[in-house]
Design a binder for these strands. Structure first.
Lengths: 220, 220, 220, 220
DNA sequence: AATGAATGAGCCTTCATTCAT
DNA sequence: GATGAATGAAGGCTCATTCAT
């Protein structure tokens, strides 16, 4: 930028492309793949109707790009370093729960469509889910499983560890996934920062209490 | 039918209606509301293309009927009697977890579309969700909250009870909701009866361990 | 129509269908399959844009129907009876040439699109051509070959007969196929009835002169 | 090229132009004007998508250039010298028939798209046909008419001469124009060199026999 | 001079829906 | 009461073309 850019200037190609992905993320998150229309995506991105075909060949090509973007975002929020920086596995668990929960909680906000996209993938998986699980979800799952294995004192592949890992993940994901129901059975609930702290604390305590009990039993 | 009905129509009015609801449940569960087509529903139900508009006025009217049917099915599997028949709240918890989990596990099977419909409602709620929560989910939620309140020894409206209730529900629902991801991070997993017993047992143990710890703390 | 029609009235179903085929014939003849638009066809037929999909499933389905209609028309103008009714093979030849030529000559007129459709098939054959040749062109080709075999005094499968048959057909078809060029190299030409008589007479004389010469050589 | 052209572009201006015309000839011959796409033409020519508009202003401009190229090729195969070099009009007729027939026969081969383009022009003439007839077809038509006039012993503008000329042309062109039908009614036919000799000989003999008969009648 | 990004018109098709029967 | 014919809106996509660079 200062002396000599060997690379050609990015024109507007990448800019339009990025705007399309962002807009598509929003629309796909809101309506799902099928119900989303290319027209609305292009309108939101301020791009021409033919831009999708030009940049991504297909509506499906655009969706693939959206999923890839989701993977990149997920990889940036890597749990591994979060776990490694923590002094004890218990603290790591709390950090992980807290971090994931906040990402889940902000899913409904504008621009945070990644989690809502996954909700549609759960209801009606597409071929892109394989890659998402392989590159984004799988690694994080392994990290959490390692932390829990440490707490319980059992090998990571032990059924108790696996099931407990799912128990923890379930409690976190629940606040994004079941949001429409929660807001109806608990109308007063507001997802303030303090409330999120409380929920993260609860999930951690709930899980730690269980895991410690399992740990005692496993060492008997 | 008794004396002189000249030509009993081959398809009863209500029978066609019921077949439409059943077929629509399948198709809506598979593709979601928008992506589902009236044509496919009518074809599966063996009905005329205009039958949906005739019986339900709208595609949305049919969807409402499907949701209503879902509510009826859910009400039949009432958790209240399950809880009342149990001798201790701990046993009730296990019964509830076991019962719900099995309904979740069989969601993928043909004919059990009610849970999958809810998955779509989570991703993209419709106006019908209000009634579903009010009539089907809410009551069951209250029952479970009561059981947990008993175990923890706190009033049902206490935050610990509410959060714990969601922790339990989350663990159960997770096995239906996150199925596509679970089958990818845990490919060997098969949902046999024994495995379902193990999972139900795990969720109950995991939750009871936590709840008992909470109980001790709350009585201090 | 007078006493008891057991068949249900044809509604407008067949009427709309027929209008579509007729309009499609015109448009396909004018522009070819690809360049023809469903919109123009429906507009000419006074039908809705979705009518093609409803009646023929596809643009290609409509084209198939058009080709089938062409076959039916061609079969009605069967050359066989024309040949059998003639007293001598020479007269039969003239009858056939005259009949075919007039059909070719009127190809440009509104409603006579069958020949022009074949022109497009020659330039860019589709899968439907097989059936057209099998059912419409092939039989007539055999009839003409039989007549020529009689005149030449050789078996129908003899090369001289086959080549001569093509020579005759070529001369007739030419006046439809090369019309755009002919009208430019012979601007004064007008296809009046008298002129058609003259051309038919010419083709017959031209061909008979050649065939008689061949006949003399083959009997030497 | 002589002293110091700094960067001779990898693709010469005129070279790209020529490659575009050649590629366009192929594609137009295969699909017709409308159905041919600029994209495919540019891809085959190894040129940019905007090259057609840059070099020819229009898709139609490119088509005009293709037709012009067709004219140039046709003029190179001038029949005039072929006729003048022959000792008798009968030999000239055979030379012309043989020469034209071979060009027709090789029309299907790659690179010989000129004849196939004309087939599309016959089915759906464009404005460019005028020039093609004026510059390429017309002169050759006159030459052939002259030869036939000599054989029949009548002036070139006599109807018998004109009609006979069309009879000869028709027989030759037929083998290119009706190829799709011929290959279906005569499946065993293979267009070997010997077969082409036979066909050219047949057309010449067929026509000469007729013309000689006409000659006798006209001198009576 | 020559290109790649971007455009808007228009294509075929499918959709939920309505209407006459 | 219940159906098949017909509708118009809108869908994704492809097209020839243009505009900055």
């Amino acid at each position: 930028m200062s002396t000599a850019l060997p690379l050609p200037p990015p024109h507007d190609h990448d800019a339009t492309r990025a705007r399309l992905v962002e807009a598509a993320g929003e629309v796909f998150a809101e309506h799902g793949f099928q119900a989303a229309t290319v027209r609305e995506i292009c309108a939101r991105a301020g791009a021409n109707i033919a831009a999708v075909n030009y940049h991504f060949r297909d509506k499906m090509g655009l969706y693939d790009a959206v999923l890839l973007e989701s993977i990149c975002v997920a990889k940036m929020a890597d749990l591994r370093q979060l776990a490694e920086q923590s002094q004890t596995p218990e603290i790591a668990l709390h950090q992980i729960v807290n971090g994931m929960l906040r990402r889940m909680a902000h899913a409904a906000e504008r621009g945070n469509w990644h989690v809502r996209i996954m909700a549609h993938e759960m209801a009606h998986p597409t071929s892109g889910l394989d890659r998402v699980v392989e590159l984004a979800i799988g690694p994080n799952y392994s990290v959490l499983r390692g932390v829990i294995a440490q707490i319980v004192g059992l090998p990571p592949h032990h059924d108790v560890v696996r099931l407990s890992t799912h128990s923890v993940i379930a409690q976190v994901v629940h606040w994004a996934h079941a949001r429409p129901v929660i807001s109806r059975v608990w109308p007063d609930l507001e997802m303030t920062d303090a409330r999120l702290d409380q929920i993260a604390r609860h999930i951690t305590d709930f899980s730690l209490a269980a895991l410690r009990t399992f740990a005692q039993e496993s060492t008997k």
